[in-house]
């Protein structure tokens, strides 16, 4: 009996250590990725204090030499050098990707909450809200960006106050597009969460003398928004990925910049594998971050039902 159970126990422990090694590697990769990004950004803002602006943080030659020195990796020395050469483009594009995502998500959220609240508690406004979300969720995001950029030519109408914040005003068109689109999706998630807050919570709020609006604000939203975190994380991840569509309206974000290099160098394989990995790193960071947020704001008994 004892001998029969041992292999299983050992296998379990091996799997465990395996997993913790994997986790450690992931954390290390994440630290390296963000360290590189932040240092590159700071270098650019400060006008090239570490290396001249546009240069990789580590010399291409050194990396090629290092790869060349290791027997198994020598064949990849040129590729590694090329990737290092690409890093300034990557960090620049990623900056815009991060900014567009962050700003659009925040603005979208600010619109989404009232949209969801009117959808659940409004009368006539519920229909307006429904129409808005259905329309925006029923058509492709790329078509919406085309309407704003080609159809309405909004890039020429960016108000003076915000014009010039980015090197190109078209960035605002992309932000507007993602905000309007994201608001519709976020509103849908928040609506679902608000509807899952029990009726008795509202009754109790009203019974101590809170008005309907106060009850929504102090009682329903704090609970509903917590319920909404998991699906809201999805929206965050979606937005990071779909921000790449801004490249189609000439916003120089990550995809646009690497695609430009690809069409000049024809090294599609390497460039797009690296681009994909960069997006993947952003996405994984976002979902880890949101897991943390969810833990931080979690309350015993709230949202636990959802795990079943």
């Amino acid at each position: 009996m004892a001998s029969a159970t041992r292999p299983a126990a050992i296998r379990e422990r091996v799997a465990d250590s395996d997993r913790s090694v994997g986790r450690l590697l992931l954390v290390a990769a994440g630290a390296l990725f963000w360290g590189w990004l932040v240092v590159s950004w700071i270098n650019r803002w400060l006008g090239g204090v570490i290396v001249p602006v546009g240069q990789p943080l580590v010399p291409v030659g050194a990396v090629e030499a290092a790869f060349g020195a290791i027997p198994g990796l020598a064949a990849y020395a040129a590729d590694a050098g090329f990737v290092v050469e690409l890093t300034p483009v990557l960090s620049r594009g990623t900056w815009l990707t991060v900014v567009i995502t962050g700003v659009s998500l925040t603005l979208g959220f600010i619109i989404a909450v009232p949209l969801a609240v009117t959808r659940v508690y409004g009368r006539f406004s519920a229909w307006l809200s429904l129409g808005y979300t259905e329309l925006l969720r029923g058509t492709p995001l790329l078509a919406q960006l085309f309407v704003l950029y080609y159809g309405l030519n909004l890039a020429s109408y960016v108000p003076g106050a915000v014009s010039g914040v980015f090197a190109r005003d078209v960035v605002w068109v992309a932000i507007l597009g993602f905000t309007l689109n994201g608001a519709a999706y976020q509103a849908e998630y928040i609506r679902g969460a608000l509807e899952s807050v029990e009726e008795g919570q509202i009754t109790a709020g009203r019974a101590i003398g809170l008005s309907k609006l106060e009850t929504i604000y102090h009682v329903v939203l704090p609970q509903g928004l917590r319920y909404a975190i998991p699906s809201w994380t999805n929206e965050f991840v979606y937005l990071i990925k779909y921000s790449s569509l801004a490249g189609f309206i000439t916003v120089p974000e990550l995809y646009y910049r690497t695609n430009q290099v690809a069409s000049e160098t024809f090294r599609y394989t390497l460039i797009f594998v690296v681009t994909g990995m960069t997006y993947l790193a952003l996405v994984l960071t976002a979902s880890k971050l949101m897991e943390r947020v969810e833990d931080r704001v979690s309350i015993p008994g709230l949202g636990a039902e959802r795990e079943e």
């Binding site: 029990e198 009682v219 609970q223």
Partner: peptide
């Protein structure tokens, strides 16, 4: 008012 189902604010 005190309710049969308590209706405590869950958050």
């Amino acid at each position: 008012m005190v309710f049969q189902g308590f209706n405590l604010f869950a958050h």
